[in-house]
C-alpha cells in the first residue's frame, strides 16, 4: 500500500482511491466502431509507466490522472482532471 497525493486533499492512503482505466482507453463517442472497440477492449499494459485515471472515491470523489510505474509503483505525476480536460 502506498500514498497517493490527491490534487485537492493532499497525501492520502491508497485505499481511499479506486482505479478506473488508462487515459488511452477512454472511448470517444464520435469514434468509428473499430476505434471505439479498440479503446474499450485493448490495453498496452506495459511493464513500465502508464497514464491511469483514478478517483478519490472515499475522499473528495474527484478524478485525476496518475503517471504510475507498474513494477515499482512510483507515481511520477498526479494531474487533476474534469470531463472537459479529457476531451
Amino acid at each position: 500500500m502506498y500514498q497517493i497525493t490527491c490534487p485537492h486533499c493532499g497525501p492520502r492512503a491508497q485505499t481511499e482511491f479506486t482505479y478506473e482505466r488508462t487515459t488511452d482507453s477512454v472511448v470517444d463517442p464520435a469514434a468509428d466502431a473499430h476505434t471505439a472497440m479498440q479503446a474499450l477492449y485493448t490495453r498496452a499494459n506495459p511493464m513500465g509507466l502508464d497514464e491511469e485515471i483514478w478517483r478519490h472515491t472515499y475522499g473528495c470523489r474527484a478524478w485525476m490522472v496518475l503517471t504510475r510505474h507498474r513494477v515499482t509503483h512510483v507515481i511520477e505525476a498526479v494531474k487533476a482532471i474534469g470531463p472537459e480536460a479529457l476531451a
Partner: peptide, 18 residues
C-alpha cells in the same frame, strides 16, 4: 500475468490488464 508484456514485444495489444 506477463502476456501483455510478451505480446507487446510482437506489437500486439491484448484485452488484458495485469
Amino acid at each position: 500475468g506477463h502476456s501483455g508484456h510478451v505480446a507487446g514485444l510482437a506489437g500486439l495489444e491484448l484485452p488484458i490488464e495485469s
